[in-house]
Structure formats: C-alpha cells, structure tokens
Design a protein around this nucleic acid. Sequence first.
DNA 1: CTAACTTTGTTCACTTGCCTAAGAATGCCA
DNA 2: TGGCATTCTTAGGCAAGTGAACAAAGTTAG
Lengths: 412, 412
Amino acid sequence: MSGSQPGLGAAHASSRSAILDLIRAAGTISRVELTRATGLTAATISTVVRRLIDDGLVLEVGRAESTGGKPRMLLQLDPSARYAVGVHLDHAGITYVIANLGGAIVARWRRPGAGSDDPATVVARIAAEIRTTITRVGVDPARILGLGVVSPGPISASTGMTLTPPVMQRWAEFPLGAALEDAVGLSVLLDNDATAAAIGEYWSGGIATGSAFAALYMGTGIGAGIIVDGTVYRGSSSNAGEVGHICVDLDGPVCWCGNIGCVEVLAGPAAVVAAARDAGLELPGRNVAENFGALARAASRGEELPLQLLERSSRYLGVAAQTLANVLDLELVILTGPAFALAGSLYLPEIERRLGQSFFARGSHPVRVTISSNAPEAAAVGAAALVLQSELAPRQAGLRMPLELPLEVTAG
Amino acid sequence: MSGSQPGLGAAHASSRSAILDLIRAAGTISRVELTRATGLTAATISTVVRRLIDDGLVLEVGRAESTGGKPRMLLQLDPSARYAVGVHLDHAGITYVIANLGGAIVARWRRPGAGSDDPATVVARIAAEIRTTITRVGVDPARILGLGVVSPGPISASTGMTLTPPVMQRWAEFPLGAALEDAVGLSVLLDNDATAAAIGEYWSGGIATGSAFAALYMGTGIGAGIIVDGTVYRGSSSNAGEVGHICVDLDGPVCWCGNIGCVEVLAGPAAVVAAARDAGLELPGRNVAENFGALARAASRGEELPLQLLERSSRYLGVAAQTLANVLDLELVILTGPAFALAGSLYLPEIERRLGQSFFARGSHPVRVTISSNAPEAAAVGAAALVLQSELAPRQAGLRMPLELPLEVTAG
DNA sequence: CTAACTTTGTTCACTTGCCTAAGAATGCCA
DNA sequence: TGGCATTCTTAGGCAAGTGAACAAAGTTAG
C-alpha cells in the first residue's frame, strides 16, 4: 500500500486476459463456450479472439462436431508463442526451467546452490546459465517474456527478498531483482516458492478459473500458496499462507521463530530427520533433504521407526491442511515441493482423511487432495508460470474493487 | 459456480461505488484526494461526485485550508440519506438495529429469541416489530434500502440458511429470505454473524479500503469474518473463516463436528461454562451466555478459578487468532460478538501477546488487536451495514478477474 | 491594489470496451 | 435444392474514462 496506486482506470484489457485465461484452463475451447463462461456477447468474444489470433497467442485448431448448425471452431493457446524462464533459488541448489505458454517444460536443469558465495557472483553465474541454455535450446529470445525468480520464505517488497533467517543472511539486503534484470536482460519477477508453486499448478494443471485452492509446499520450510478465483491471495504484506508457523501444540517445543509448537518445528523435514537421529538412527546424507529422502524410502519399505516418524509428521500436516481449508474454505489442496516429492504418498492418506472429516466436507463440498505431478521442480515451474501469467493477465496490483455482494434473495 | 455467471460486462458503476467507499472510509475527503486514491482523472471524479451530490448521497461541507491555490471542497456522506435495518437472529434473542449511512445507530432494540416457535410465526413477529419501529422513529420508508438478516453458522445459498446443528433445526429448510421479503416489503440479504460483524466494523470503524482484517466473533460459536481490500473473503462455498473448528490440540476432546481438539470445544463459552461446572462452581444462569457473563465478572473481581478458566480459553483463542493472521496475513483483528462483549478485556492481553510474537509481527508489520466498540450488537449492526454496502458497492458476485501481478522489479 | 502564479474543479471532444442488431458463413435434414 | 439451426462477423450506438483547455478561487510579489 505504498504511494499512489494505479487503481481503477487501469482495468482495461481485462477481458482479453480473462479470455486468455479461460482458453488456458480449458485446453481447447470454442468461441461459444467463451461467451457462456465470460458473460460477454458473442460479438465481443469474436473481436477479442481475432486480436489474440493476430497477435499469434491463440490458434484455431480444427472444428468440433456440429450440434445441428455450423460446427464450432476450436481455439487453443499456441504453446510456442511465448516462453518464460523460471529459477528456484535455494541454498541447497538452483533449479532452472524454461516453460512455454502451454506450461510445458522446454528445458530443465539444476546447479549447485548459492552456498556461501557472494550474491553478485551468483547473479553472474545465473545470467550465464540462462543465456547459454536459451541459445542451446534454440528458443527465439524475442519470445521470452521474462524471468521469474523464487525463493523460500517471506519477501520484502522494497529490497527484493528476505530469505529465511538461518541461512543466506547476506542476501537479505541485496537488490536481487534489479541485479538480475541488468545481468540477464529480461524483466524479473520475484516471489516466494509456495506462491509460485500454486501458480504453476494453476497454470499447467488445468485448474478452473473460479476455484479456491492452495498449494501446500514443503521444502526448506512449510508454506502455502493460495489462489482464489484465479488471483493470488497475498494478504496485507504479501506474506499470506505462512502455514509453517501456525501453532498445533500449545505444549510443544520452541520454534526458531519464537513461538511454541509450530508445524515446522514439529513436523517439517528437519524435525523429522532430527527425531530420527535422536532415536538412534544412522543417517548418511549430507543435508536434511537427503536424509529425509532416505527416511521416506525406509518408511516405504515398511521400516518401523521411519514409518512412525512420518506418520506423526503427517498428522500435524493434516491439521495444518485442515486449518487452511477451514479458514479459506478451499475445495482443493495440492501437495508439492521437494519434501512431498519424496514422501507425498506417505502423507496423502492422513491429510485426505482429515480433510474428509472437515467441518464442511460433509455439509457442502468435499476438499480434494492431490500430489503435484511435478513436485520436485514445482517452484521453478511456478516461477516461469508467474511470468506467463503476468503477461496473460496484466493487471495492476493496486486495482481494488469495493465490497462483494452478499447472498441476495430475490423475491418471488 | 452454478450456471451462467454474470461475469464481466456488469462491472459498471464500479467507480461510483469505489468513490463512495473512499468517502466513507475517510470520513471527509476532497476531490483531489479522491483522484489520487482511485487513480482516476480529476475529470472523472468531478462528474461522478456531481452525480453523487445530485442523488443526495454526498454533501459538500466547507473547504480545506489553501495549499497555495484554490482551497479544496470537502466531501462527506450525508448520514441521513439512506437507512438500513439489521436483524440478528439467534435462539437466545433477536436484536434489531436501524442504522444510517454513517453507520450510526438510529434505533436498537431486543426481543426474545425464536425459541421453539414456528418459523412463519417468527417471521410475522419480526415484520411487525420492524414496521412499528420505523414509523415510531420517523424514518422515511422510501429511504430504507433493505433488511439484513444474520444468524450463526454456515449458510446454504439455496434454501436460505442452515443454522448450527444443536438448535433451531427446523429452520434448516425454511425459505427465510423470501418469507421476510414478502412480510416486510424490503429486499433481504442473508449472511452469517461473523461476516456481518466484520462488515459492520469496516463500515462504522473507518477502516481503510486497502487493508486485510478479520473480525473474530465469539457468540454461540466461534467464527471470523474476513475482509480484504474492502471485499468479503468468502471462499469457494461462502463458509470461509470457520475458526471454531480448527484443531489446536491433537490430543484434545472430541467436538460435535466430529473432529478432535477444535477451538470451540476447548475454549468456547459453552466449554468454559462446562469446565466451571465440572470444577464444582455453582452457576445460577439460565443459559450459557448468562453463566459465561457471570464467570467473566467473577474473573474480573479476581476469583481464582474463573480467572484460570478464562486464561486457558484465551490461550486457545490466541492461537486461533494467530493462525488466522498467519494464513491471511492480517494487519488487524477485531474481537467482537456477545462473548467478547462480556469478557473481551480478559482475552485481549493474551491475544495481543501472541499476535505480537507472530512470525511477521517483527519482520514486516504489527498485527493490531482491538475490541469492538459495539460488540454486543455487532452482528445486528453488521447486518444493516451489509445492506448499506450492497447499495454502495453493487457488484456482481460472479465477477472474476484474472491473476494479480506479483511484485514487479523495475529495472534501473 | 494589481498582476502573476498555484491549485482546484468543470466542460467538451475523443477513444475504447462492450452491447444490440443485422447479416454472412457453414453445416444438417427434408 | 431449399429451409433451418448454429456459429461467427460486421456495423452502429451507448457509456465510462481520458486529455486538454478553461474557469474559479485562493496566495504572493511588486
């Protein structure tokens, strides 16, 4: 809420974005269906779609079967019309992705993390990586919309981002966005991993435009990206969805955040690994992720102790997911991120069970739970989707609308 | 998500609503400030404000001090331009309110609750109450915008409302809205008490348009009304903010909702009263509310056991508030509803403490906590505000916008 | 006191997004 | 082959918002 806001008036081109988004969500769709979905007239749809086709974003692909008259022309996004680069920055590793308009991954690679290197050095490395791969893959640079960069933890709008306290402290005040824009020559968007993962799912998962869902992301920390009606829910300081630090046990251990009984300190990967160590298990991995993976494999094989530990963790995550669903009235929760990539199938049943018991699951609608199809690089894919979305839905952040209408009862 | 949606295109008159809402939030404001806040041009503001003045909704009240040129004309809502009736329907009692555009209460009264009476009888009683009071107070019926009706628990869009399972079961399938519209002759809006209380605070509390806040409502149950950017957050089935049934103790008692360790069963008024009884305390009241009030007074006097019980309850509610703030990234939590009206000051310190420790309280922004100034009839006032708001911001529910832009980094 | 300047607010012609209405295109079926 | 249904396009009009010029009402400098 800083300074003068773009506000209303900038709300134009919104139907173009809405239509593009519907085409994305549907995969292939006809003009008639677009009129029904948007509420716009056939005439408007016609002209807007014409412009989209002229701009090369949309293709006419064949015709549907006739329903008694002229058959509908089917529309689709042209996947190779635009591209975006996504980068997931973590101290464990940097994941790169180049994605096209269809949400498909054109290139994907991984390099060692930032570690203790100087931020400027890392930025130069990232820029070189991206440039060489773009030429190698043969993507027309003019069609690349931008670069999305994603990292764990809360972000600060001013400086760029504040990473989680324990690690990468020196990045806190580094102007990452501006530096990368200079180095790579692309416009840069910054966001946190959970939000990006949610957009990634929204983008490539064919999720309907009107739904409310969350991506529960477990990686270094535990967070949630929340998308409502096709819009990211950000809250008052862009830090919504901080699931890792909700309290699920008033008598629990102290978390590094200062509170007691946080989900993260009770059930996060680091906590699970630490508990295994305390119980006397030998863990050979060099970091938490590796050890967590080893525990997940051991649990899958049926080993007693790992199984117990992961079951305990999944109970807490079930509570967190249920809390999220209760507060936000979600209809879908997607498990994603590196930790769920390793152990998602162990967590799924318990989380599913709890959400099935949820207050409204019986009354109004069920809460579905799924595991992301690309959980390991969900954040990087989401970073790219972030950029794609910002092109398809170029909407000012400050645009605000007045209060929504409550349930209206129309008199007989 | 049913059928064809109103969709885009119906987005007109939105700037009129936005401007009206800004005038409401500011109390008094000039045209120049409106241009800055909305992003619209001075020309647009001029014409829209002219229409608002012609319609009698806005008044020009004096001029501001000159800043070197022509002094600004100050604008204000005309409080007596419009009125709305609010009704809070609970089995304990029915609270009525007539409020004006300024959010001020013109009339307020209370009658015995629905009890076990026939719904049709109750509707007739309500209609008679409202009609006689309108004439008694002398409000011009033509200036009454409508009737807001509010009750605890989740609502079903189809039939009207579903009240909480334990009581008033026979109301579940009664078409309350339609019946009231016929009987009273006003258009009727239905919603739940927590949401209404939140709008009430938003309306009369002078809360800024851009903020994210929640009204934590403790009455029969525990719920939260969530308002983001001046819009009610409703979720996918209008049941968002169900705080009462989030789990805060995995080893806790079973709740009537089927889950374990819900806030409501651990810390709700009924739970506090039951615990007091179990501990051997004599409680003379006829219902939970009276006994809870007695306990609150005893605790204020410093009696040991009541104090302990309420402190225990406030710890759980602190967790709930913190969870809400973490998930939604709130900047303000308002305690309201009958229970907080009785014991708010006993709850405030602990809730404040917890939110002060919250993850982002230190990093980005504090989370403020206040007690509603009119907690006892917050729901009824909110019911009226609901109607006022629906006039000031006549926005279609189905209007949906594509994804919001993430943090953009502008190069050099 | 007058002239120049600043800031506020209004008027008017123009653009743009969307709508209504009419018509063109393209298939099915008698 | 000629209706008929359905899809899509084109043409004219309305309304919201903009930009630019202008009018109004104050302050400040001479």
